[in-house]
Computed example of a mutant assay.
Amino acid sequence: MQWYALLILAVAAERIAELAVARRNAAWTRAHAGVEYGRGHYPVMVALHTGLLVCCLLEPLLAHRPFLPALGWPMLALAALAQALRWWCITTLGPYWNTRVIVVPGARLVGTGPYRFLRHPNYVAVVAEIIALPLVHSAWLTATTFTVANAALLTVRIRCENAALARAVSA
């Protein structure tokens, strides 16, 4: 369980690094007339991602979930691939990437990197991680609960982001 706790702490540290990048990018986009959309769902997103990490630690501990190698190792690999995809998205979007929906009017949509293949590859990474990270240590209740909650949140988030991008591109 100790190595799993270290994994979750490493993911939390990675999230803090993401927030630092997002803060820097938000300042850049606002300096370039960026407009923020979807402020109402942002606190829910933060709570969901924070809750995921907390429950990843609590469920194996409180429910005595074992590490099952046949499940845990593939899920660890999937979580690592999700991280790689997320950072590919971040580096591809450069200063346009953010944890918030902030768009610069008149900016063109990015069509390189993972965006050549998918419109929202970062959300593929998020979905994979929310499923995989808890299952590394058999936290199936956390995986199920947060996958369902994330699906509801992504319905709102993607709709918001698509509308914001459509407005920005047509501006």
Rank of each mutant, 00 (worst) to 15 (best):
V104D: 02
H137E: 11
A128N: 00
V35W: 05
I16N: 00
W97S: 02
C89K: 08
M45P: 03
T155Q: 10
A107Y: 08
P121T: 05
L141E: 09
P66L: 10
I102K: 06
W88L: 04
H137G: 10
H32L: 10
H41A: 04
R39C: 01
E129F: 00
A139C: 13
V44F: 15
L71S: 08
L78T: 12
H120E: 09
R119Y: 02
T147A: 13
N150H: 11
L68V: 14
A22L: 10
G94K: 07
L93E: 04
T50V: 15
N122S: 12
R30C: 04
G38K: 06
L57G: 15
P134E: 05
A107D: 07
F146N: 01
A22W: 08
L53H: 11
L135M: 14
P60M: 13
Y115R: 02
A10K: 01
P95A: 06
Q2E: 09
A27G: 13
I130E: 05
L141H: 09
F67E: 01
V169L: 11
N150R: 00
S138L: 07
L58E: 12
T50N: 13
P43C: 08
V44G: 06
Y96V: 02
W87E: 01
P121C: 07
L58A: 15
L135T: 12
C160D: 13
R116S: 03
Y115Q: 05
W88I: 03
R108Q: 06
A168H: 12
P69R: 01
V156S: 06
R15S: 07
W88H: 08
R39D: 09
Y96E: 09
S138C: 13
V35E: 12
A166S: 15
L57Y: 14
H120Y: 14
V124E: 02
A128V: 10
L153C: 10
V127A: 05
V127E: 00
L81K: 02
T112L: 07
L76K: 01
V148A: 08
C160S: 12
L141Y: 02
C55F: 15
L58T: 13
Y96D: 06
R108W: 00
T91D: 01
A20D: 01
